[in-house]
């Protein structure tokens, strides 16, 4: 049931995704702030399908050269392509403190045992500025294979970016900067190079009191 209703292709399903800041309170406790978060969902067949977005509307927000979003989509499979609009929660006090930990955690599951590679490209005006590549092995748990990228440290570029964003006095200014800031995550089977998931992330700043929010869309070409 999750196919078409959550971030899942026929080969791999995203279970959870979060970018966070951990600040030590005292020697034993941490305060964890979630900038963005996609929690566990358990869609059923009665749930509606995700809305779709024509991928051509966002091509220029992501790398367009060889191996860019268009090439990836043309290669397929099309059911692996998603757009996530995040309303990031920036309601946190940031100080330059080396005891702070900025991290990203994500989890995936599959019915297949494989090695996955996750490439995360941060883009400014559609051009890649930094890329992180991670390789993860599967763990067999409860009848399926689970992949965990646990507490991957956020890169310097992203930490600086968040700090600079926080220093802007008005939310509309932050959103104006975020209009040209995107992230493209591509998860592939390391051995076959098959695209398992391709997720295009775009951002605004949350105005909610309930923290980070998001919408998920299927990317299609009508």
């Amino acid at each position: 049931p999750w196919q078409g209703r959550s971030i899942a292709s026929s080969r791999l399903r995203m279970l959870e995704f979060s970018a966070f800041l951990e600040q030590p309170q005292d020697s034993e406790t941490f305060n964890k702030h979630l900038f963005v978060h996609i929690g566990q969902s358990n869609p059923s067949y009665s749930d509606a399908y995700l809305e779709s977005v024509d991928i051509r509307q966002i091509y220029d927000k992501f790398p367009e050269k060889k191996g860019g979003l268009k090439d990836l989509f043309d290669k397929g499979p099309h059911n692996a392509f998603f757009l996530v609009k995040f309303w990031a929660d920036l309601s946190v006090n940031l100080q330059d403190d080396s005891s702070f930990f900025y991290g990203v955690s994500s989890q995936y599951e599959s019915s297949e045992n494989m090695i996955i590679t996750s490439s995360t490209k941060v883009c400014s005006f559609g051009k890649q500025v930094v890329e992180k590549v991670e390789t993860e092995f599967a763990r067999f748990e409860n009848g399926r294979y689970v992949f965990r990228i646990h507490r991957s440290p956020l890169c310097e570029y992203m930490i600086n970016f968040i700090h600079k964003l926080k220093h802007l006095p008005e939310k509309y200014m932050m959103n104006s900067v975020l209009e040209n800031f995107t992230i493209l995550q591509v998860v592939t089977n390391k051995d076959t190079l098959e695209t398992l998931l391709c997720i295009a992330y775009v951002f605004e700043v949350s105005t909610s009191e309930h923290g980070a929010q998001h919408h998920i869309y299927r990317l299609v070409k009508d």
Partner: peptide
């Protein structure tokens, strides 16, 4: 590309793209 410089607000995106969910 053809969409270069077109503000996101002027693109063909679902209405929900501009509606922040209010769920907790």
């Amino acid at each position: 590309g053809v969409m270069d410089q077109v503000p996101m607000r002027k693109r063909q995106l679902p209405a929900s793209f501009w509606e922040e969910p209010r769920l907790t």
